[in-house]
Design a protein around this nucleic acid. Sequence first.
DNA 1: CTCCGGAAGG
DNA 2: CCTTCCGGAG
Length: 360
Amino acid sequence: MRNISRPLKTGKSLGNDDWFSSQLLDWYGFNKRHLPWRETKDPFKIWLSEIILQQTRVNQGMPYYLKFIASYQTVQDFAQANLDDILKLWQGLGYYSRARNMHQCANAVMNHFGGNFPDNYAELQKLKGIGKYTAAAIASICFGEAVPTVDGNVFRVMARLFGIAEDIAKTSTFKVFFDRAKTLMPAGHSGDFNQAMMEFGAMICTPKSPECATCMFETHCFAKSKGLIDSLPVKSKNVKVRHRYFNYYVYTHEGQVLIRQRSEGDIWTGLFEFDIEETKKSLKSSSFEGGKLEYSSSEMVHQLTHQKLHLRFHVYEMRSQKALVQVGEAKQMLMVSRERIGDYAVPKPIELFLNNEFCR
DNA sequence: CTCCGGAAGG
DNA sequence: CCTTCCGGAG
C-alpha cells in the first residue's frame, strides 16, 4: 500500500471547517483497500456487506460476502432462499441472528417496499437487523444522506483525535459522537467520509499499536500529545464469564448419525448438533445405555465473550439400523449419513469435531 | 488468556 | 439502562 500521509499545514486544528475531512478523504482516496462492495452502490450488496462486517473483520468476512453474492444476486433471490441454506453459508461467522434477521429483512423489503430498500435513515432502521450503524451506512453510501456511521472505529478515531473521554459503553455517549461526526461531514460526500473514517480506524488508528508515525493527524492528535493512546476511547466493561458443560452423544450405525436443530433462546439458534445433555458442574463420563460406547473425546474448550463452553463427545455405535431409528424417534432427531452432515449448518466446535475426529 | 464489535431484548 | 449473541486476532 502507498503511504501518502502528508504533513499538516500549520495553524489548522482538527474539526475546523472542512480541513479535517479533506485530509481524511485525501488519505482515503490513495490508501483505501479495493473491496468488492466498494465498487457498487447497490443497496442489496451494501446491506449484505455491512451486516457481514458487523463484529467481523474484512479478511474474515470477504469469503462469506463472495459466497453470498455468488448464491444470491438480488434481495428477491435472498428472500426466496431457504433459511437453512442461508445459515449453512453463514456457518463459522458467528452471531447467527444476523443471518436470521437478514432473511426477515429481505422478505420485508419484498413485501412492503416492492423489492427496493427504503432510501433513508429512519425507514431503514425499521427493518430487522438494521440499527443506527447499518442504516447510516446504507443511507450515506447508497443514497447520499448526511448521517454518520458511528461504529467502533469511529468511536476510537474521534475519542483519540479530539480527546472525547465519555464512556463509549454508555448508550447516551452515542449521541455525543454522532453529533460531532455530523459536523465534520462534508456536504455531498457522506458515504466516502463514513467509509474513510472507518478505514482509517481499521488501518491506522487501530486498537493496539496504532500507526501514529504515518498518521497525518499525529501532531494534532489529543491522545498522542497527552500520551493517552492506550486509554482512549474509554470503555467500561462488566464481563462475567459463565461456564457451561455440553455433553454430546453421537448415535451412529453404519455411517448414519442422529442430529437435531437447536431452538430459539440460546446460542446457535437454528444450527444443528448431536444429542446434548448440559450439566451444571463438570462433564459426565457417559450415560447412554442403548448402544456400545465406541469413543469419548477429550474435553474441548470453546471461549465466547460471556461463556466458556466445555464440550465432550461420546460416540455410540447402535446394534442395528432399527435401534438407531428408534432412538431418533424417541429423541426427535434427524437421521443423516456422515457424508451429508456437511449440508447442515453446525457451530464451530462441532465443525472442528467433525473435521478432526469424527469424519476422518 | 484478553480484547474487539452492532443489534435486539429485557 | 444492562445483557446476550459468536469467533478470531493478538
